[in-house]
Computed example of a mutant assay.
Amino acid sequence: MKKITIKDIATQAQVSISTVSFVINGKGQKMGISTNVIKKVQDVAEKLNYRPSMIATSLRTGKTRSIGLIVEDISNQFFSDLARVIEDEAKNIDYRVFYCSTGDDDERSEELIHSLLQANVDGFIITPTQNLESSIDLLLKLKKPVVLIDRYFPGQKVSHVVMDNYEGSHSATKFLINKGCKNIAVVNNTSEMVQMKLREEGYRDALKEEGLYNENLVLHMEYHSNEEARIASIIKFFKKNAEIDAVLFLTNYMGLTGLQAFKDMGIEIPGNISVISFDDHDSFKLHTPTISVVAQPIEDIAIKSIQLLMSQMTDMEAFEVEKSLKKGKLIIRESV
């Protein structure tokens, strides 16, 4: 399909190319062009389905009407669901979204930020890796609009939108206690990111409040290990601690790994053990039995992140840093 240019519009509207250019760029009235001619040009542009060049628009306005979205892993259902809602919200305000996945690699994350800076995106929504704080500081120094999601750096003055991870974990653990579970394990990773620390703290405090905390029932798996190694780690841990009657997995990928390990071990859910995992997943709904989860408020996080980013893009000097905490939802299914 032939790309429509302002020359095509000028030919069909029977006006000069400069007249079309002034109208398309919103300068028709300022340049003394009549209302009738402005409408005629706009009607022809719409009829021809004219779309201005992003590069040309960027050179003229300094804006690309684009957002850089950097997440850990777009194949993870939590991040893909989050990205879909962010894209829908951005589309509503006529912005496009460039997706990037970091694989939780700091070097890759820095490369992506610099690539998006070169692409002149108008703002950033980022799920930061563990050592990305200095790169976020660079964006702030450059006065680039930026919002962090899912995780953040406690001492950094940057807007973020996250789930109340402490409350979610605390509530899930309390629910298991109220169901009569006394030997409740937790499976975490070794990333040391703030959201993972808060989830483990919520679990630990809930058990300590009831005098049930046992540090031996805490498993930390290597973050960058493969699935086979994670399954082996879980099997070893649960064989060593046969008294465990419930477990809280702090991410969905760890929960899925745990289900595979339990299948290999012949552990029945919920007969032998009750299970709750963070971050819902389609597999949890299809599993027999269905798996209880602490679901993140994906839509709330996405909408709020766009709102905070727009406030910066609209007036970078006037906006105030906002740290937004959204409450998750404990969804009880057949695994408890």
Results as ranks from 00 to 15, higher is better:
residue 3 K to W: 05
residue 7 K to Q: 13
residue 9 I to Q: 07
residue 9 I to C: 07
residue 12 Q to D: 13
residue 15 V to S: 12
residue 17 I to M: 10
residue 17 I to K: 09
residue 20 V to G: 07
residue 31 M to W: 13
residue 32 G to V: 07
residue 33 I to Q: 08
residue 35 T to P: 13
residue 38 I to F: 03
residue 40 K to Y: 09
residue 42 Q to H: 09
residue 50 Y to Q: 00
residue 55 I to V: 05
residue 56 A to S: 01
residue 62 G to M: 01
residue 67 I to S: 00
residue 71 V to R: 05
residue 73 D to R: 06
residue 74 I to F: 07
residue 74 I to H: 10
residue 75 S to I: 02
residue 76 N to T: 08
residue 78 F to L: 10
residue 81 D to K: 14
residue 81 D to I: 02
residue 88 D to C: 02
residue 93 I to L: 11
residue 93 I to K: 03
residue 94 D to W: 06
residue 95 Y to F: 14
residue 96 R to W: 05
residue 99 Y to W: 08
residue 99 Y to F: 13
residue 100 C to A: 13
residue 100 C to T: 07
residue 101 S to V: 06
residue 102 T to M: 09
residue 102 T to K: 11
residue 104 D to Q: 13
residue 109 S to F: 05
residue 110 E to K: 11
residue 118 Q to K: 12
residue 123 G to L: 00
residue 124 F to S: 09
residue 125 I to T: 05
residue 131 N to Q: 15
residue 136 I to A: 01
residue 138 L to Y: 08
residue 139 L to N: 04
residue 139 L to C: 06
residue 140 L to F: 05
residue 141 K to Y: 06
residue 145 P to E: 00
residue 147 V to C: 01
residue 153 F to G: 02
residue 154 P to R: 02
residue 156 Q to A: 04
residue 158 V to N: 07
residue 161 V to M: 04
residue 167 E to H: 05
residue 174 K to W: 04
residue 174 K to R: 14
residue 175 F to H: 15
residue 176 L to I: 04
residue 176 L to E: 10
residue 179 K to N: 13
residue 180 G to R: 08
residue 186 V to H: 12
residue 192 E to K: 08
residue 192 E to S: 15
residue 192 E to F: 13
residue 196 M to D: 15
residue 197 K to Y: 15
residue 202 G to S: 10
residue 204 R to N: 12
residue 211 G to V: 02
residue 212 L to G: 02
residue 212 L to C: 02
residue 221 M to F: 01
residue 222 E to D: 15
residue 232 A to F: 03
residue 234 I to E: 07
residue 237 F to Y: 08
residue 237 F to R: 07
residue 240 K to R: 07
residue 248 L to G: 10
residue 250 L to R: 04
residue 252 N to M: 07
residue 259 L to R: 00
residue 259 L to G: 08
residue 261 A to H: 07
residue 263 K to W: 06
residue 264 D to R: 10
residue 265 M to E: 09
residue 266 G to Y: 00
residue 269 I to W: 12
residue 277 S to R: 00
residue 278 F to V: 02
residue 281 H to M: 01
residue 285 K to S: 08
residue 286 L to G: 03
residue 286 L to Y: 11
residue 287 H to S: 11
residue 287 H to V: 00
residue 294 V to H: 01
residue 295 A to V: 01
residue 300 D to H: 11
residue 301 I to F: 11
residue 304 K to T: 11
residue 307 Q to L: 00
residue 317 E to P: 04
residue 317 E to W: 02
residue 318 A to S: 14
residue 320 E to Y: 06
residue 320 E to F: 11
residue 323 K to H: 12
residue 329 K to D: 15
residue 331 I to P: 08
residue 333 R to Y: 02
residue 334 E to G: 04
